[in-house]
Simulated scan of single mutants.
Amino acid sequence: MNNPFKKQQIIVGALALLVLAVAIFNRPDTGDGELHFDVKGERAYVYGTTDSASAGAVDALIRENPQVDTLVLKYMPGTVDADQNLRLARSVRKNRLKTHLERNSRIASGAVDLFLAGTKRTMDCGAQIGVHSWSIAGLETYEPKNDIFDARQRRQEGFLRDMGIDPAFYVFTRDAASPQELHILSPEEINQYNLLTEPLSC
Rank of each mutant, 00 (worst) to 15 (best):
N3L: 10
P4S: 09
P4W: 07
F5R: 03
K6Y: 14
K7H: 10
Q8P: 00
Q9H: 08
Q9L: 15
V12T: 13
V12E: 09
G13H: 03
L15S: 11
A16C: 10
A16P: 00
A16I: 14
L18A: 14
L18F: 12
V19I: 14
L20C: 07
V22S: 12
V22D: 11
A23S: 15
I24Y: 01
I24Q: 07
D29L: 14
D29S: 11
G31F: 05
D32C: 10
G33Y: 12
E34C: 06
E34N: 14
L35H: 03
L35Y: 04
H36V: 08
V39P: 03
E42N: 12
E42Y: 00
E42G: 04
R43F: 07
R43W: 04
A44I: 04
V46R: 06
Y47R: 03
Y47K: 08
D51M: 08
S52V: 09
A55I: 02
G56S: 14
G56T: 14
G56A: 15
G56Y: 06
V58R: 02
D59L: 07
A60L: 12
I62M: 13
E64L: 12
E64S: 14
E64K: 15
Q67W: 03
D69H: 12
T70F: 00
T70H: 02
K74A: 11
G78L: 03
V80F: 02
A82H: 06
A82M: 09
D83I: 13
Q84E: 14
N85L: 01
N85F: 00
L88G: 01
A89G: 13
R90F: 04
R90G: 01
V92L: 08
K98W: 02
K98E: 10
T99C: 10
L101S: 06
R103H: 12
I107D: 02
A108F: 09
S109G: 04
A111E: 02
D113G: 03
D113M: 11
L114M: 13
L114D: 00
T119V: 15
R121K: 13
M123W: 00
D124K: 11
C125M: 02
G126I: 01
A127K: 00
I129L: 09
I129P: 00
G130Y: 04
G130Q: 03
H132M: 08
A137P: 00
G138E: 12
L139E: 11
T141F: 10
Y142L: 13
E143R: 15
E143W: 06
P144H: 06
P144A: 13
P144N: 11
K145R: 14
N146T: 06
D147F: 05
D150F: 07
R152K: 08
E157V: 04
G158F: 04
F159S: 03
L160C: 09
L160W: 05
M163K: 07
D166W: 07
P167K: 07
F169W: 10
F169N: 00
F172I: 06
D175E: 15
P179F: 00
P179I: 11
Q180N: 13
H183Y: 12
I184G: 02
I184E: 02
L185S: 02
L185E: 02
S186V: 05
S186D: 05
P187F: 07
I190L: 15
N191A: 06
Q192F: 07
N194D: 06
L195I: 07
T197M: 09
T197V: 07
T197Q: 08
P199I: 11
S201M: 09
S201F: 05
C202T: 08
